[in-house]
C-alpha cells in the first residue's frame, strides 16, 4: 500500500493544478506510531504532505459533510461506500467530488499491537505484508494479516465502489469470509446472557461520544442525546442512559453502516461498539439483501416504505 502514495500525490497535484478541486482531503503523517491525521491540502505544492499506509483507518467521508468546496477525496472501499451514503443523504453533491479511489488491503489495529507489548511501542514500519514494531529494547516482525482491524479482516468491499481516479489497480476481494460469526455467537445467547454481555461491553463508556463523532453517518444538527425537549437521555453516568445511547446510535445506523470501524477506532476506552452495528448489518442483509453504500442510487431499506413491506401488523 505504501506504493500508492506517489500515485495519490500525482493525482492530487493534477487535480489542484487543473483547478478541478479546491482541496484534497487525505492523510498526513501522524506524530505517533500507527497514527495518521486526516488533513487537507489546498495547494499543489503541499502534496508531499499526503501519506498513505495501513494507518489510515479514519473514514474520510466524515470530513465531507455539508462542505461547499469542490473536493478531491481519497477513498478506500469503506470511505467510498460512505460517500455513496453521503450523496444519497444530501450531505455532499456528487459533482462536488473527485473521488480518488484507493484499493485497500486493510488497516492495522493499533490497539491490538499496543496491547501485545508491555512497554511503549515507539516505532512501527511496514514493508509489503510485514509490519515491524520497535520499542525500548525490542523489535518484532508481524504479519500484517494477523494484526488487521477486525472490520478490515472481514471486509468484502476493499475496492472503492465509486471513484473517478484510481490510485492503484483493484485488489482481489476477500472471499468466503464469515462476517457474522460473532453476531451469531451473541444471538445464540439467552436473554440474560445477552443482557449481561452488553452491560459488560459498555461498562467502560465515558460518554464522550467519540464513536458517534467518528462516524460519517452521525451528522444531525442536534443529536438526540443533546436534545433537551424532550430530554431522551440524562447526562450522568446512569447505565440506562448509556445503554439508550448505544442502542439508539446503532439503530440510527441500521441499513447505513458500512462497518468502516471508525467508531471502534475512535473509542478512547476500547469498547467494541461494532457489536451493535454488526447485528443490524446482518439483519439488513438477511431481511432485505442489503449492504449499505453499495448501490449509488438506492436508499437504504429502512428509509423506504411500501405497503407490501413484510409485516402483518400493517394490515
Amino acid at each position: 500500500m505504501l506504493g500508492y502514495i506517489d500515485k495519490i500525490r500525482e493525482i492530487s497535484k493534477r487535480l489542484l493544478d487543473e483547478g478541478r478541486v479546491d482541496m484534497v482531503v487525505g492523510f498526513r503523517k501522524g506524530s505517533m506510531p500507527m497514527m495518521n491525521e486526516p488533513s487537507f491540502i489546498k495547494n499543489s505544492g503541499e502534496v508531499s504532505k499526503l501519506v498513505w499506509d495501513s494507518n489510515c483507518g479514519i473514514n474520510l467521508a466524515n470530513y465531507l459533510t455539508d462542505r461547499k468546496e469542490k473536493i478531491g477525496v481519497i477513498a478506500k472501499g469503506c470511505d467510498s461506500r460512505n460517500i455513496v451514503t453521503h450523496i444519497l443523504e444530501n450531505k455532499i453533491k456528487r459533482d462536488q467530488l473527485v473521488i480518488i479511489g484507493v484499493p485497500c488491503k486493510g488497516m492495522i489495529d493499533r490497539r491490538l499491537i499496543t496491547a501485545m507489548f508491555d512497554t511503549e511501542v515507539r516505532e512501527v514500519n511496514e514493508k509489503g505484508d510485514t509490519v515491524t514494531v520497535k520499542g525500548a529494547g525490542f523489535e518484532k516482525k508481524l504479519k500484517k494479516s494477523d494484526i488487521l482491524q477486525d472490520n478490515c479482516s472481514k471486509c468484502i468491499h476493499r475496492n472503492p465502489v465509486l471513484y473517478d481516479e484510481l490510485a492503484a489497480p483493484l485488489v482481489e476481494e476477500q472471499k468466503d469470509i464469515d462476517r457474522y460469526a460473532e453476531v451469531r455467537r451473541i444471538e445464540a445467547m439467552s436473554p440474560q446472557e445477552k443482557w449481561q454481555y452488553f452491560e459488560d461491553l459498555i461498562a467502560p463508556c465515558i460518554r464522550c461520544y467519540a464513536c458517534r463523532n467518528a462516524c460519517p453517518l452521525c451528522y444531525c444538527p442536534t443529536c438526540f442525546v443533546d436534545e433537551s425537549r424532550p430530554q431522551w437521555v440524562g447526562k450522568s453516568q446512569d447505565e440506562t442512559d448509556i445503554r439508550t445511547f448505544h442502542f439508539l446510535r446503532a439503530y440510527h445506523c441500521a441499513g447505513r453502516c458500512t462497518d468502516c470501524g471508525a467508531c471502534e477506532r475512535a473509542c478512547p476506552v476500547g469498547i467494541k461498539v461494532r457489536q451493535f452495528t454488526s447485528k443490524l448489518n446482518k439483519d439488513c442483509l438477511d431481511m432485505f439483501g442489503w449492504e449499505a453504500g453499495v448501490l449509488p442510487d438506492q436508499r437504504p431499506p429502512l428509509d423506504t416504505f411500501k405497503p407490501a413491506d413484510p409485516g402483518d401488523f400493517i394490515k
Binding site: 444530501n90 436508499r299 423506504t304
Partner: peptide, 21 residues
Amino acid sequence: PAVCSSCGVCVSICPYSAPSF
C-alpha cells in the same frame, strides 16, 4: 428546519409525497 439534517428519509419514506426540500 433548524434541527433538520436534510438527509431526506422523510422525502423517501412518505407514501403521500408530502415532504420535500
